[in-house]
Amino acid sequence: MEQDYVNAQIGKRIRDLRNRKGLTQQELADRAELTKGFISQLERGQVSPSVVTLLDLIECLGTTASDFFKEAVEEQIVFTEEGFFEKVDEGGNSIQWIVPTAQKYQMEPLLVVMQPHQSLDEDKPHDGEEFGYVISGKLNVYLGDQVYHVKSGESFYYPAKRKHHIENPGNRPAKFIWVSTPPTF
């Protein structure tokens, strides 16, 4: 039973690679000096290739044995609240990492709820860029010696080469999406 599963997985990977390369079964068979019937049976998991034959097929398909046998990891596309990580600071400001594994990517989106008259810690100059979209409330964005006023429905974007920080000057909480690249939090 185990052998049938292995044969089916090998056959599926051969078929997927062949299709990605735009080859017919006959073209792959010709390159590997095999028959079309053998390729067909292999792709359906009905036969078990010898190690030499399998390595030859892998080479004909333009890949390596290590890449061929790597487990395909399903990349997560949708993230739900259950997976969010939240930090609440001393001022009651909530920062939620809305893509929990974002540190491995090139940008890190956060959902921030800032309490009235609160400020987030000042960031020192660093490589990268920062973007924000204000969902509700208003913010002051301090960039170097400049102050920019941003209200609900507006966005901000800046290279992070100067010291910067964000504050809520209003009497209500401010909610905004904040994206940094590369992730620095």
Rank of each mutant, 00 (worst) to 15 (best):
L55A: 01
S119G: 08
N19D: 14
Q9A: 09
Q96A: 06
G144A: 05
A160I: 02
D56E: 13
V179C: 14
W178F: 10
N93A: 11
L110H: 13
T184P: 06
P116C: 02
C60H: 14
G45T: 04
R20W: 01
S48N: 15
E33L: 09
D16F: 00
E154K: 08
W178N: 08
F131P: 03
K104H: 10
A8Q: 15
L23R: 02
F185D: 09
Y158M: 10
N140F: 10
S94E: 09
V141K: 01
S40E: 11
I10H: 04
I77V: 11
E122S: 11
F176G: 03
S40Y: 13
L55P: 06
P109D: 01
S119F: 03
E108G: 05
G22M: 03
Y148T: 02
L110S: 08
T64M: 12
M1S: 11
G37K: 01
A65L: 13
Q3D: 13
V51W: 04
T80W: 01
I58E: 10
P159G: 00
H149M: 03
A65E: 14
R162M: 13
L28W: 05
P183E: 00
L61K: 07
E122P: 15
G153D: 11
H126A: 03
G153T: 04
S40Q: 13
F156S: 07
S50A: 02
H126Y: 07
S180N: 14
V88L: 05
S66N: 14
K175D: 04
F68D: 12
E82K: 12
F79T: 06
T101D: 15
L23W: 07
D67I: 01
D123V: 01
R172P: 05
V78F: 10
L54H: 12
L120E: 13
D4W: 00
H149I: 04
E43Q: 07
G37Y: 01
H117E: 15
T63Y: 06
Q103V: 00
F68M: 08
L57K: 07
G37H: 04
F68Q: 11
S136R: 09
F69R: 04
D30Q: 15
H164Q: 09
D123H: 15
I166E: 07
V88S: 01
E167L: 03
L61W: 12
L42R: 11
E122C: 08
V179D: 12
I177Y: 13
P169L: 00
P182H: 00
Q46Y: 01
Q118Y: 03
D121G: 09
V141I: 10
G144E: 12
V88N: 04
E27N: 08
A29T: 09
F85N: 10
G92I: 01
E90F: 02
L111C: 09
K138T: 02
D89I: 01
A160V: 07
D56H: 08
K104V: 03
F156E: 08
E74W: 03
S94G: 00
K175M: 07
